[in-house]
Design a protein around this nucleic acid. Structure first.
Lengths: 150, 150
DNA sequence: TGCTAACAGTCACTTTTGTAACTAACAAGA
DNA sequence: TCTTGTTAGTTACAAAAGTGACTGTTAGCA
């Protein structure tokens, strides 16, 4: 059936990545959906703000490669939940500076811990070496700036 | 801002995976969308059938972890495009055996080649060693059965 | 200053997805 | 055979995402 130099679909990277992303995101999704009623994009926005401090929607979009309308909607939801506040930038009134509120920060802290636990669980079946190579490779593929190890 | 033992969100696996999946799927998506007017799930169904031969929707769903309604819709679209035919299983009339038509097979062949080229491009920035570890780790994370190397 | 182009963010409209209920077919035990 | 439960696949409705047009603001330059 399969000819000899057939390219195996199951080792096609976009396929593998999609699959692995779906698989690993699912259980974690329960955390933020169940506890905070958040959507995936909301969680990602929250994480960016928690991690990097004040940012604009545009900056979050550029970094996460998520479309601006999606971000816009997520920001709206997070603002409704009082997880962030929006302030117009005085120097450029088109820009809106987004900042986590206290409860936003708390949610972030809780979720970051949950994420860490989740991550540790995921890498259980990998060796230290594999883990390192994996993260490095993924960062390259994801087009993220290379980050030195701590 | 970041406290010392902060867990870096950008190395959180589900995040990295999602990001990398989006990033790498996008350019390939242009191929099947532009050329065959296919959606992502349709492409995945097509690839499963092309790769494994006759399957039922249920089997494809089980293997790809895609929800059955999504599969159902993709199958419908592919049938409209005459890329596959559906035959009721005589031994169990609930089951529908899906099989690629000639033009379905042609599309598969074309897309498989495109996928292969795409893959080669992606791994250009990785070393042989990294590539191997990456695929292996992804297969584990994706919950796919372990496949021996060729 | 006035004109044009670019940009941040939102909105309205369409397409796609998720969820749950539904139909039809089978299975297994009373 | 009848009843109850399960399974394959579809459908209908609600939620979410994609797309393009829109508003308000800034920047550059004649």
């Amino acid at each position: 059936m399969a000819d000899k130099n057939a390219f195996d679909v199951e080792s096609f990277l976009p396929y593998l990545l999609t699959q692995a992303a779906e698989e690993t995101s699912l259980s974690f999704q329960k955390e933020y959906k169940g506890r905070y009623g958040m959507l995936r994009t909301e969680w990602r926005v929250l994480f960016h703000l928690g991690n990097y401090g004040v940012m604009t929607a545009q900056e979050i979009g550029a970094r996460s490669k998520v479309h601006k309308t999606k971000i816009s909607r997520a920001v709206q939801k997070l603002a409704e939940k009082r997880f962030l506040v929006r302030k117009t930038d005085k120097d450029d009134r088109r820009r809106e500076l987004l900042e986590l509120t206290l409860s936003g920060k708390e949610a972030f802290k809780y979720l970051r811990k949950a994420a860490q636990r989740h991550d540790e669980k995921l890498i259980e079946e990998l060796t230290k070496k594999e883990e390192k190579v994996l993260r490095r490779a993924l960062q390259k593929l994801a087009g993220l700036p290379h980050r030195p190890e701590k």
